[in-house]
């Protein structure tokens, strides 16, 4: 096991899969000569050359669609968006082409493609460059949506995404690229898509958190332990398909649940999880489901305002104490 950053883990995953399968190629803005806007793709051009690692013009709709077309006829593209904010320009190709091709062709054309890049809250880049839009993609049958929170998950899940025969939206958290953790050295280390991970076991309250909210939930759980509250932290890792069974099992054990996410509360993944808990485990609840979400405003620039938007440890602790009727 080596201790590396999420950035390095992603780089290893892409490097290993490029080496493993000639059909895999990487394309996007600044991925090659510039070594990646966030340096995730550092060194890949030197190692694999311009045929496999391709700088594109700033033309998101165009290269996203080009990737889908190439996937139709036998290639396995990894398409990087400098940030998922720019994927908004490419949504027609992601939603109308990639997600639906297999179905509307009666099973003839599957689309093995990964759309990846950083998403979620960044630091002080205001409204257009700092937002969590995973619920858009998770809405569509045909897409898979993955959001890792540790270096090991990042590597294992990205390798699975690249080997998967369906379109996968792979959202890396922009603030987390430098986070470190242990990653297995085995080049065949993968983590299956669609499987939640219990990041911390506990007995009193379940906290469901993904991406940026996982380390925050774990910190909150540490502090709550000192206050005598045992929290179980579940990271779904894949939000479509969602491993709802693992969440339900935990809720049945703890009878209390807090759902944490950085995205807007309206029509978000937490709303979906909350509904599923109502349908499947309402009788097990000792308190109403509590959501902790990003504040429902466009992201502001000013540091003090930005800090108010993104959920922090104190907000998670307050929510847990609320469902545990401690205050």
């Amino acid at each position: 096991m080596a201790t590396i950053t999420i950035r390095e883990a992603l780089n290893q995953a892409i490097r290993e899969e490029l080496a493993r399968d000639e059909r895999v190629f990487l394309m996007g803005e600044e991925v090659a000569a510039y070594n990646g806007a966030y340096k995730v793709t550092k060194g890949l051009l030197d190692e694999f050359g311009p045929k496999r690692v391709i700088d594109t013009p700033i033309t998101e709709l165009g290269f996203a669609g080009l990737g889908v077309g190439a996937a139709m006829v036998g290639l396995r593209p990894i398409v990087e968006f400098i940030t998922f904010n720019f994927s908004i320009l490419a949504t027609d190709q992601i939603v109308n082409s990639a997600a639906k091709m297999l179905y509307m062709s009666g099973g003839q054309y599957n689309i093995p493609i990964v759309f990846r890049g950083p998403g979620g809250s960044a630091y002080q880049v205001s409204s257009q460059h700092s937002q969590a839009i995973e619920s858009w993609f998770a809405y569509f049958p045909g897409l898979k949506v993955v959001m890792p929170s540790t270096p090991a998950d990042a590597k294992g899940l990205l390798k699975s995404a690249i080997r998967d025969d369906d379109p996968v939206i792979f959202i890396e958290q922009e603030r987390m690229y430098g986070n470190k953790g242990e990653v297995p050295d085995d080049p065949d280390f993968t983590i299956p898509l669609g499987v939640a991970d219990i990041k911390r076991e506990g007995t009193d309250v379940t906290i469901v958190a993904r991406s940026l909210m996982v380390p925050i939930a774990l910190k909150a759980a540490d502090k709550l332990q000192e206050q005598g509250v045992s929290c179980e932290v579940i990271d779904p890792r894949t939000i479509r398909p969602l491993d709802i069974d693992t969440i339900i099992e935990s809720v049945k054990k703890t009878n209390r649940v807090v759902l944490a996410e950085e995205s807007h509360p309206v029509c978000g993944i937490n709303a979906e999880i909350s509904a599923a808990i109502m349908e499947r485990a309402m009788d097990f609840l000792d308190a109403p489901v509590k959501r902790v979400s990003g504040i429902d405003v466009p992201m502001p620039y000013a540091k003090n305002l930005e800090d108010l938007v993104v959920p922090d440890v104190d907000r998670v602790i307050a929510a847990v104490r609320e469902v545990a009727y401690l205050d």
Partner: peptide, 20 residues
């Protein structure tokens, strides 16, 4: 490679087939 329903949506797809 199909008929596509969004006006112009098939143009990047065809470009991708040629790329491949």
């Amino acid at each position: 490679l199909g008929g596509h329903g969004i006006v112009g949506g098939q143009i990047p797809l065809g470009t991708g087939a040629a790329f491949a």
